[in-house]
Protein backbone atom coordinates (compact mmCIF):
# COMPACT_ATOMS: atom_id res chain seq x y z
CA UNK A 1 0.00 0.00 0.00
CA UNK A 2 2.80 2.41 0.74
CA UNK A 3 6.49 2.40 0.31
CA UNK A 4 8.51 3.40 3.31
CA UNK A 5 10.04 6.52 1.86
CA UNK A 6 9.74 8.92 4.78
CA UNK A 7 7.34 11.74 4.02
CA UNK A 8 6.97 13.25 7.47
CA UNK A 9 10.08 12.89 9.59
CA UNK A 10 10.44 13.88 13.22
CA UNK A 11 13.95 13.94 14.66
CA UNK A 12 14.78 14.08 18.35
CA UNK A 13 11.93 16.44 19.07
CA UNK A 14 11.77 17.92 22.54
CA UNK A 15 9.19 20.19 24.10
CA UNK A 16 9.11 21.32 27.70
CA UNK A 17 6.73 23.72 29.39
CA UNK A 18 7.84 25.93 32.25
CA UNK A 19 5.64 25.29 35.24
CA UNK A 20 5.69 27.55 38.29
CA UNK A 21 5.65 25.66 41.55
CA UNK A 22 4.10 27.37 44.53
CA UNK A 23 3.26 31.03 44.79
CA UNK A 24 6.72 32.44 44.27
CA UNK A 25 8.19 29.17 43.10
CA UNK A 26 10.84 28.92 40.51
CA UNK A 27 9.79 27.57 37.17
CA UNK A 28 10.63 23.97 36.55
CA UNK A 29 10.41 22.32 33.15
CA UNK A 30 7.65 19.85 32.42
CA UNK A 31 8.97 17.28 29.97
CA UNK A 32 6.06 16.85 27.58
CA UNK A 33 7.93 15.40 24.63
CA UNK A 34 11.47 14.05 24.94
CA UNK A 35 13.68 12.95 22.06
CA UNK A 36 10.86 11.75 19.86
CA UNK A 37 11.87 10.51 16.42
CA UNK A 38 9.35 9.23 13.90
CA UNK A 39 9.00 8.65 10.21
CA UNK A 40 5.70 8.45 8.39
CA UNK A 41 5.42 7.40 4.77
CA UNK A 42 3.02 8.98 2.35
CA UNK A 43 -0.49 7.51 2.45
CA UNK A 44 0.28 5.64 5.63
CA UNK A 45 -1.45 5.88 9.00
CA UNK A 46 0.79 6.18 12.00
CA UNK A 47 -1.09 5.29 15.17
CA UNK A 48 0.29 7.15 18.15
CA UNK A 49 -0.73 5.49 21.39
CA UNK A 50 -0.25 6.39 25.00
CA UNK A 51 -2.13 7.25 28.15
CA UNK A 52 -3.12 10.78 29.18
CA UNK A 53 -0.08 12.90 29.82
CA UNK A 54 2.22 10.84 27.63
CA UNK A 55 2.83 13.81 25.34
CA UNK A 56 0.73 12.71 22.36
CA UNK A 57 -1.23 15.94 22.09
CA UNK A 58 1.86 18.11 22.52
CA UNK A 59 3.53 16.17 19.73
CA UNK A 60 0.44 16.65 17.54
CA UNK A 61 0.44 20.39 18.21
CA UNK A 62 4.13 20.60 17.35
CA UNK A 63 3.49 18.81 14.06
CA UNK A 64 1.06 21.52 12.94
CA UNK A 65 3.15 24.36 14.36
CA UNK A 66 0.75 25.25 17.15
CA UNK A 67 3.62 24.72 19.57
CA UNK A 68 7.26 25.43 18.92
CA UNK A 69 9.52 22.60 20.08
CA UNK A 70 12.63 23.38 22.13
CA UNK A 71 14.84 21.14 20.06
CA UNK A 72 14.72 18.69 17.20
CA UNK A 73 13.52 18.80 13.64
CA UNK A 74 10.32 18.21 11.74
CA UNK A 75 10.77 17.60 8.02
CA UNK A 76 7.74 17.38 5.77
CA UNK A 77 8.31 16.42 2.14
CA UNK A 78 11.86 17.64 2.36
CA UNK A 79 11.10 21.03 3.94
CA UNK A 80 12.15 21.95 7.44
CA UNK A 81 8.80 22.74 9.04
CA UNK A 82 10.21 24.54 12.06
CA UNK A 83 12.09 27.02 9.86
CA UNK A 84 8.96 28.08 7.99
CA UNK A 85 7.50 31.54 8.33
CA UNK A 86 5.20 33.92 6.49
CA UNK A 87 3.95 32.71 3.13
CA UNK A 88 5.82 29.40 3.37
CA UNK A 89 4.16 28.63 6.71
CA UNK A 90 0.78 29.50 5.23
CA UNK A 91 1.47 27.13 2.36
CA UNK A 92 2.45 24.42 4.85
CA UNK A 93 -0.84 24.93 6.70
CA UNK A 94 -2.67 24.07 3.50
CA UNK A 95 -0.80 20.78 3.33
CA UNK A 96 -1.02 19.58 6.93
CA UNK A 97 -4.15 20.04 9.02
CA UNK A 98 -5.37 18.96 12.44
CA UNK A 99 -8.62 17.55 13.80
CA UNK A 100 -9.15 17.98 17.51
CA UNK A 101 -10.45 15.67 20.16
CA UNK A 102 -13.26 17.73 21.61
CA UNK A 103 -15.73 18.34 18.79
CA UNK A 104 -17.50 20.98 20.84
CA UNK A 105 -14.50 22.92 22.06
CA UNK A 106 -12.97 22.98 18.61
CA UNK A 107 -15.92 24.84 17.08
CA UNK A 108 -16.58 28.49 17.87
CA UNK A 109 -19.98 28.47 19.63
CA UNK A 110 -20.95 31.76 17.93
CA UNK A 111 -20.16 30.69 14.41
CA UNK A 112 -22.61 28.72 12.30
CA UNK A 113 -20.95 25.49 11.23
CA UNK A 114 -21.15 26.48 7.55
CA UNK A 115 -19.17 29.62 8.36
CA UNK A 116 -16.64 27.52 10.27
CA UNK A 117 -16.05 25.33 7.21
CA UNK A 118 -15.96 28.38 4.96
CA UNK A 119 -13.38 30.18 7.06
CA UNK A 120 -10.34 28.26 5.70
CA UNK A 121 -11.48 29.13 2.16
CA UNK A 122 -11.49 32.80 3.15
CA UNK A 123 -8.16 32.65 4.96
CA UNK A 124 -6.38 31.13 1.97
CA UNK A 125 -8.54 32.97 -0.59
CA UNK A 126 -9.46 29.67 -2.19
CA UNK A 127 -13.00 30.62 -3.09
CA UNK A 128 -15.54 33.36 -2.54
CA UNK A 129 -19.21 34.10 -3.02
CA UNK A 130 -21.26 31.40 -4.68
CA UNK A 131 -18.21 29.25 -5.32
CA UNK A 132 -17.34 29.19 -1.62
CA UNK A 133 -20.95 28.37 -0.85
CA UNK A 134 -20.83 25.42 -3.22
CA UNK A 135 -17.47 24.24 -1.90
CA UNK A 136 -18.87 24.21 1.65
CA UNK A 137 -21.87 22.19 0.47
CA UNK A 138 -19.56 19.72 -1.27
CA UNK A 139 -17.41 19.38 1.87
CA UNK A 140 -20.50 18.78 3.99
CA UNK A 141 -21.61 16.06 1.60
CA UNK A 142 -18.14 14.54 1.57
CA UNK A 143 -18.11 14.11 5.34
CA UNK A 144 -21.64 12.74 5.33
CA UNK A 145 -23.51 15.81 6.55
CA UNK A 146 -26.64 17.25 4.99
CA UNK A 147 -25.56 20.66 3.63
CA UNK A 148 -28.77 22.04 5.17
CA UNK A 149 -26.98 21.80 8.52
CA UNK A 150 -24.68 24.66 7.51
CA UNK A 151 -26.89 27.24 9.18
CA UNK A 152 -26.88 25.44 12.52
CA UNK A 153 -24.82 26.40 15.52
CA UNK A 154 -22.42 23.78 16.94
CA UNK A 155 -24.61 23.22 20.01
CA UNK A 156 -27.46 22.22 17.73
CA UNK A 157 -25.48 19.26 16.37
CA UNK A 158 -24.62 15.90 17.91
CA UNK A 159 -21.05 15.03 18.86
CA UNK A 160 -20.58 12.93 15.74
CA UNK A 161 -21.96 15.67 13.49
CA UNK A 162 -19.71 18.24 15.12
CA UNK A 163 -16.69 16.05 14.57
CA UNK A 164 -17.69 15.74 10.91
CA UNK A 165 -17.75 19.54 10.75
CA UNK A 166 -14.27 19.60 12.27
CA UNK A 167 -13.08 17.16 9.62
CA UNK A 168 -14.73 19.17 6.82
CA UNK A 169 -13.04 22.33 8.09
CA UNK A 170 -9.64 20.63 8.02
CA UNK A 171 -10.33 19.25 4.52
CA UNK A 172 -11.38 22.65 3.18
CA UNK A 173 -7.79 23.65 2.42
CA UNK A 174 -7.22 20.39 0.53
CA UNK A 175 -4.52 18.95 2.82
CA UNK A 176 -2.33 15.93 2.12
CA UNK A 177 -1.82 15.02 5.73
CA UNK A 178 -4.15 15.10 8.74
CA UNK A 179 -3.05 15.01 12.34
CA UNK A 180 -6.00 13.45 14.14
CA UNK A 181 -5.78 14.11 17.86
CA UNK A 182 -8.04 11.47 19.39
CA UNK A 183 -10.75 12.25 16.86
CA UNK A 184 -13.23 9.69 18.19
CA UNK A 185 -12.45 9.32 21.88
CA UNK A 186 -15.14 11.86 22.85
CA UNK A 187 -17.80 10.04 20.84
CA UNK A 188 -20.21 7.19 21.57
CA UNK A 189 -18.96 3.81 20.44
CA UNK A 190 -21.54 3.47 17.65
CA UNK A 191 -20.69 6.94 16.37
CA UNK A 192 -16.97 6.17 16.67
CA UNK A 193 -17.32 3.38 14.12
CA UNK A 194 -19.06 5.70 11.66
CA UNK A 195 -16.45 8.42 12.00
CA UNK A 196 -13.62 5.90 11.67
CA UNK A 197 -15.26 4.54 8.51
CA UNK A 198 -15.50 8.09 7.18
CA UNK A 199 -11.83 8.69 7.92
CA UNK A 200 -10.86 5.50 6.09
CA UNK A 201 -12.96 6.52 3.06
CA UNK A 202 -11.44 9.97 3.01
CA UNK A 203 -7.97 8.50 3.21
CA UNK A 204 -8.67 6.23 0.25
CA UNK A 205 -10.28 8.90 -1.92
CA UNK A 206 -7.91 11.72 -1.12
CA UNK A 207 -4.76 9.70 -0.59
CA UNK A 208 -4.30 11.25 2.85
CA UNK A 209 -1.48 10.58 5.26
CA UNK A 210 -2.67 10.25 8.85
CA UNK A 211 -1.01 10.73 12.18
CA UNK A 212 -3.71 9.15 14.29
CA UNK A 213 -3.52 9.72 18.01
CA UNK A 214 -5.49 7.50 20.33
CA UNK A 215 -5.42 5.96 23.74
CA UNK A 216 -7.66 3.13 22.58
CA UNK A 217 -5.69 0.30 20.99
CA UNK A 218 -8.82 -1.20 19.46
CA UNK A 219 -9.25 2.00 17.45
CA UNK A 220 -5.59 2.03 16.45
CA UNK A 221 -5.84 -1.60 15.33
CA UNK A 222 -8.57 -0.58 12.89
CA UNK A 223 -6.77 2.43 11.48
CA UNK A 224 -3.02 2.23 11.71
CA UNK A 225 -0.42 0.78 9.39
CA UNK A 226 2.33 1.68 11.84
CA UNK A 227 2.15 2.16 15.57
CA UNK A 228 4.24 4.22 17.94
CA UNK A 229 3.69 3.86 21.68
CA UNK A 230 4.49 6.83 23.92
CA UNK A 231 5.18 6.76 27.61
CA UNK A 232 6.08 9.86 29.59
CA UNK A 233 7.04 11.85 26.53
CA UNK A 234 9.18 9.17 24.90
CA UNK A 235 8.55 6.62 22.20
CA UNK A 236 8.92 3.24 23.89
CA UNK A 237 7.99 1.05 20.95
CA UNK A 238 7.53 1.61 17.25
CA UNK A 239 6.96 -0.62 14.26
CA UNK A 240 4.46 -2.01 11.74
CA UNK A 241 0.98 -2.16 13.27
CA UNK A 242 0.61 -5.90 12.68
CA UNK A 243 3.90 -6.73 14.35
CA UNK A 244 3.53 -4.39 17.33
CA UNK A 245 -0.03 -5.45 18.04
CA UNK A 246 0.63 -9.17 17.56
CA UNK A 247 4.02 -9.45 19.23
CA UNK A 248 4.61 -6.42 21.39
CA UNK A 249 8.16 -6.18 22.73
CA UNK A 250 8.07 -3.46 25.32
CA UNK A 251 6.50 -4.45 28.65
CA UNK A 252 4.35 -1.30 28.55
CA UNK A 253 2.91 -2.23 25.15
CA UNK A 254 2.32 -5.76 26.42
CA UNK A 255 0.39 -4.37 29.38
CA UNK A 256 -1.62 -2.00 27.17
CA UNK A 257 -2.57 -4.82 24.82
CA UNK A 258 -3.57 -7.08 27.66
CA UNK A 259 -6.27 -4.54 28.53
CA UNK A 260 -7.91 -4.72 25.09
CA UNK A 261 -10.92 -7.06 25.04
CA UNK A 262 -10.59 -9.90 22.56
CA UNK A 263 -13.81 -10.98 20.82
CA UNK A 264 -13.03 -14.68 21.27
CA UNK A 265 -14.17 -16.36 24.49
CA UNK A 266 -11.82 -19.28 23.90
CA UNK A 267 -8.79 -17.06 24.24
CA UNK A 268 -7.32 -17.20 27.68
CA UNK A 269 -6.17 -13.75 28.60
CA UNK A 270 -4.05 -12.66 31.44
CA UNK A 271 -4.60 -9.00 32.15
CA UNK A 272 -1.55 -7.19 33.32
CA UNK A 273 -2.52 -4.49 35.76
CA UNK A 274 0.24 -1.94 36.11
CA UNK A 275 0.87 -0.80 39.66
CA UNK A 276 0.64 2.90 40.45
CA UNK A 277 0.22 5.92 38.21
CA UNK A 278 2.54 7.26 35.56
CA UNK A 279 5.25 9.33 37.23
CA UNK A 280 5.04 13.10 37.10
CA UNK A 281 6.53 14.55 33.92
CA UNK A 282 7.94 17.26 36.19
CA UNK A 283 10.29 14.70 37.73
CA UNK A 284 10.75 11.80 35.35
CA UNK A 285 12.45 8.84 37.03
CA UNK A 286 16.09 8.18 36.18
CA UNK A 287 16.94 5.26 33.96
CA UNK A 288 14.09 3.71 32.07
CA UNK A 289 11.02 5.96 32.54
CA UNK A 290 8.85 2.87 32.87
CA UNK A 291 10.90 1.07 35.52
CA UNK A 292 8.78 2.05 38.58
CA UNK A 293 5.79 0.23 37.09
CA UNK A 294 7.50 -2.36 34.94
CA UNK A 295 6.36 -5.96 35.53
CA UNK A 296 9.26 -7.42 33.54
CA UNK A 297 10.84 -10.29 35.52
CA UNK A 298 14.38 -9.24 34.58
CA UNK A 299 14.02 -5.69 35.85
CA UNK A 300 17.22 -4.73 37.66
CA UNK A 301 19.49 -1.86 38.64
CA UNK A 302 20.37 -1.22 35.05
CA UNK A 303 16.74 -0.26 34.37
CA UNK A 304 16.84 2.14 37.30
CA UNK A 305 20.01 3.86 36.15
CA UNK A 306 20.39 3.61 32.42
CA UNK A 307 17.90 4.85 29.82
CA UNK A 308 17.46 2.09 27.25
CA UNK A 309 17.93 3.02 23.61
CA UNK A 310 15.15 2.55 21.07
CA UNK A 311 16.72 -0.57 19.52
CA UNK A 312 15.50 -2.86 16.81
CA UNK A 313 14.11 -5.98 18.48
CA UNK A 314 12.60 -7.55 15.38
CA UNK A 315 12.71 -6.59 11.70
CA UNK A 316 11.55 -2.96 11.51
CA UNK A 317 10.25 -3.09 15.10
CA UNK A 318 12.02 -1.12 17.77
CA UNK A 319 11.52 -0.99 21.53
CA UNK A 320 13.10 1.01 24.32
CA UNK A 321 13.86 -1.81 26.77
CA UNK A 322 17.04 -3.46 27.98
CA UNK A 323 15.48 -6.89 28.21
CA UNK A 324 12.77 -7.06 25.58
Amino acid sequence: MSDRTPWLVVERLRKTFPVARGMFGRRVPLYAVTDVSLAVARGETLGLVGESGSGKTTLARCLVRLETPDAGRIVYDGTDVLALGGAALRAFRRRVQIVFQDPYGSLNPRLRVGAAVREPLEIHRLARGQEAHDRVAALFAEVGLDPAYRDRFPHELSGGQRQRVGIARALAVGPECLVLDEPVSALDVSVQAQVLALLRDLQRHRGLTYVFIAHDLAVVRQMATRVAVMYLGRIVEEGPADAVLATPRHPYTVALLSAVPVPDPATQRRRIVLPGDPPSPLAPPPGCPFHPRCPHPQKDDRCRQELPALDEKAPDQRARCHYA
Partner: peptide, 17 residues
Protein backbone atom coordinates in the same frame (compact mmCIF):
# COMPACT_ATOMS: atom_id res chain seq x y z
CA UNK B 1 -6.75 28.43 24.96
CA UNK B 2 -9.93 27.16 23.35
CA UNK B 3 -9.49 24.58 20.65
CA UNK B 4 -11.38 26.65 18.09
CA UNK B 5 -8.71 29.31 18.45
CA UNK B 6 -6.04 26.64 17.97
CA UNK B 7 -7.99 25.36 14.95
CA UNK B 8 -8.10 28.84 13.43
CA UNK B 9 -4.37 29.30 14.02
CA UNK B 10 -3.61 25.90 12.53
CA UNK B 11 -5.63 26.97 9.49
CA UNK B 12 -3.37 29.97 9.11
CA UNK B 13 -5.69 32.71 10.42
CA UNK B 14 -3.93 35.98 11.21
CA UNK B 15 -3.86 37.23 14.79
CA UNK B 16 -6.24 39.98 13.69
CA UNK B 17 -8.73 37.47 12.35
Amino acid sequence: DREYVAAARALGASARR
